[in-house]
Structures are given as structure tokens and as C-alpha cells.
């Protein structure tokens, strides 16, 4: 078993005159979760389709589970599960029937498929709906069935193309739990998303692509560091004291403060100790502060600084405090 679950080198894909991919390099280690992050049209689906043997690259090569996707597609297919961007269940069939069909097409024994289906339906909270046509399912349920369908053969490598697009916030959180559960079981995951927050939450490593090219790569933390460190943000209560506040902040900041109305922000280094010094400096000036916080850059900021334009669908409220510590092996 090779250490790398997915290796792609110089993937180029042209559709006629449209260059969807302009040379993508990508590596996913066994047991790792890599998030492919990019706006609509960046080339995410094209990458996933090449890696899951649905499309041939124009040039470049890719290996999945050690097999070349062009030369040994059959071997690759035995190792992977794919949950594509578009719903891939037969909506006239029940949830259980869908799983039975896909199980049979993976050439799994019927008895195994029955037991595994029941287990998947149970863990994805679909047991009550198992014998209803998928047509009657909500968006979140359908997506879970979709995911369950790609798990019936217990693939070691899973491709998830925008697994939560179109889901309401509650279903999205549910989907995150499900994905984190799979990862805890040792599944290697390559997922794509337009949601910066999602990549941050789920992925060990993030590959940012835009217009068919990798524009940045690394952990969420490294990406954030790449565009500079933390910023301090304060808001003053009395409009006449803004200038004094700026003077106070200048004494602790590593760059020139920016003012917007009653809010002052400035780049800082030194982590949370800066907050203490800032409060002291403001106190010396006698400025009353309404709010003070240390803001870590979000992936929105990363994206904006890397591409010069914002990601189309921004799901993350920009100043949401970041919880880390995903407890993953």
C-alpha cells in the first residue's frame, strides 16, 4: 500500500477552447483530508472527475491508490467512492433499494449489502425513511443517502464534490459530523467546497484553486500566516476620542491603524498579550472602549488577497471566533 492515496502531476484539461485545468499538482496522503477550495468554475469538479476516472486529462497524470487513472481505471474504481456535485440517487427507488442497487453493482454479496445498508441507513439517520422513495426526501436526507451510496463498498478513498452545497445550515452541520466520523475511521477524503469555513473545519490541508491553477496550499494556519498575522479591532464610544485612540493603538501595533467610523483596526504581532498592552495604552489616554478583539484572518481574507476577488459564495461570517482542535489522528 503506497503512502500516497492520490497523486496528480501537471493535470491539464481542455474542453475545446476552454482550458478548465492549467496544470494541477495535488497530493493526498493516506488518512488525510484535503480540501479543494475554489469559486464556481475554478475546476474543482473537473479535478474530481479526472481522479475518479470519469474524464481523461488532456495531459499530466494521476494515480489513485497507486493505480494510474487512465491506464487502470477498473482498479481505481474498486478503491474509491464518489459523491458527485449533482444528486446521484434514483429518486423513484427507496433509500434501501438505491443502496441495494449500488451494492450489487460493486459486485458485493447480497447478504453483505443488506447488512451494510441497514448499518449505513442507521448511522445516517435514514432508517425511518429507508423504505420511502428518495423523491420524498429532504435535501439533507438525499445528500446523506448519496453519501451512503458511495460508502457501501467501504472505499478507502472518498471523493466528495461540494458535499454541502445547497444544504441548510443545520443539514450542513450534520454532514460535517458524518464526514468527520468517516475520517476518524481512517478514510482518506478529497473534498471540494466553495465554503471557506467548510475547508477550514474539515480539511487537514487546503488547496486553493482558481481558473484551473493552484494558487495556494497548506494548512488553514499557514494560509492565514501567508497574508499576515492577526489584527486588533477596537471600537470607541465617544466619536471625539478616535484620534486619541489611534495614537494609543499605534504604540502597540506593528503597522499603521485603519479607521472606519468608530472602529479602529491595526496589524499586531505577539498574540493575545497585545490585547493587554492595548487596553493599558487606551487607559493611559483615558479612552473609553466599547469593544475590543483580536481577529485572526479568515480564509475569506486569504482568498481575497490571493486572487484579488472574493469567493463567490461566502458562507463564513467573517468575524466568527475560530474553534480549532478537531481531534483527528
Amino acid at each position: 500500500m503506497t503512502d500516497e492515496a492520490v497523486v496528480a502531476v501537471g493535470l491539464v484539461k481542455e474542453f475545446g477552447s476552454v482550458k478548465a485545468l492549467g496544470g494541477i499538482d495535488l497530493t493526498v496522503k493516506r488518512g488525510q483530508v484535503v480540501g479543494l477550495l475554489g469559486p464556481n468554475g475554478a475546476g474543482k469538479t473537473t479535478v474530481v472527475r479526472i481522479l475518479s476516472t470519469l474524464l481523461m486529462p488532456t495531459s499530466g497524470y494521476a494515480k489513485v491508490a497507486g493505480f494510474d487513472v487512465v491506464k487502470n481505471p477498473a482498479e481505481v474504481r474498486r478503491e474509491i467512492g464518489l459523491t458527485g456535485q449533482y444528486a446521484a440517487v434514483n429518486e423513484y427507488l427507496t433509500g434501501r433499494e438505491n443502496l441495494a442497487m449500488f451494492g450489487a453493482l460493486y459486485h458485493l454479496p447480497a447478504k453483505y449489502v443488506r447488512e451494510k445498508s441497514a448499518e449505513l441507513l442507521e448511522s445516517f439517520e435514514l432508517t425511518d425513511a429507508a423504505d420511502r422513495p428518495a423523491k420524498t426526501y429532504s435535501g439533507g436526507m438525499r445528500r446523506r443517502l448519496d453519501l451512503a451510496s458511495s460508502l457501501i463498498a467501504q472505499p478507502s478513498i472518498l471523493f466528495l464534490d461540494e458535499p454541502t452545497t445547497g444544504l441548510d445550515p443545520r443539514s450542513r452541520l450534520g454532514m460535517w459530523d458524518v464526514i468527520n466520523g468517516l475520517v476518524a475511521d481512517g478514510t482518506t477524503v478529497l473534498l471540494t467546497t466553495q465554503y471557506l469555513e467548510e475547508a477550514d473545519q474539515l480539511a487537514d490541508e487546503i488547496v486553493v484553486i482558481d481558473h484551473g491553477r493552484v494558487i495556494a496550499q497548506g494548512t488553514a494556519e499557514t494560509l492565514k500566516d501567508q497574508i499576515g498575522g492577526d489584527r486588533i479591532e477596537i471600537s470607541v464610544i465617544d466619536p471625539t476620542r478616535v484620534t486619541d485612540a489611534v495614537d494609543a493603538i499605534r504604540t502597540v501595533s506593528s503597522g499603521e491603524p485603519a479607521v472606519e467610523g468608530l472602529t479602529i483596526s491595526a496589524p499586531v504581532s505577539g498574540g493575545s498579550t497585545v490585547l493587554v498592552s492595548a487596553i493599558r495604552a487606551l487607559d493611559v489616554q483615558g479612552v473609553e472602549v466599547g469593544d475590543i478583539l483580536l481577529r485572526r484572518p479568515t480564509l475569506d481574507d486569504v482568498f481575497l488577497s490571493l486572487t484579488g476577488h472574493a469567493a463567490e459564495e461566502d458562507a463564513a461570517p467573517s468575524d466568527e471566533p475560530k474553534k480549532r482542535g478537531k481531534g483527528r489522528k
Binding site: 446521484a88 434514483n90 453493482l105
Partner: peptide, 17 residues
């Protein structure tokens, strides 16, 4: 027109099936 085709094609099933 649905994603089903992608799923079918990603399965280790026979190509004519």
C-alpha cells in the same frame, strides 16, 4: 442529466451494463 451517470461510471461495473 442527473449525477447518476457519474456514479455508475465511477463504479467497478461493466461499461456496457
Amino acid at each position: 442529466s442527473t449525477g447518476l451517470i457519474d456514479r455508475f461510471r465511477s463504479l467497478p461495473m461493466a461499461s456496457g451494463a
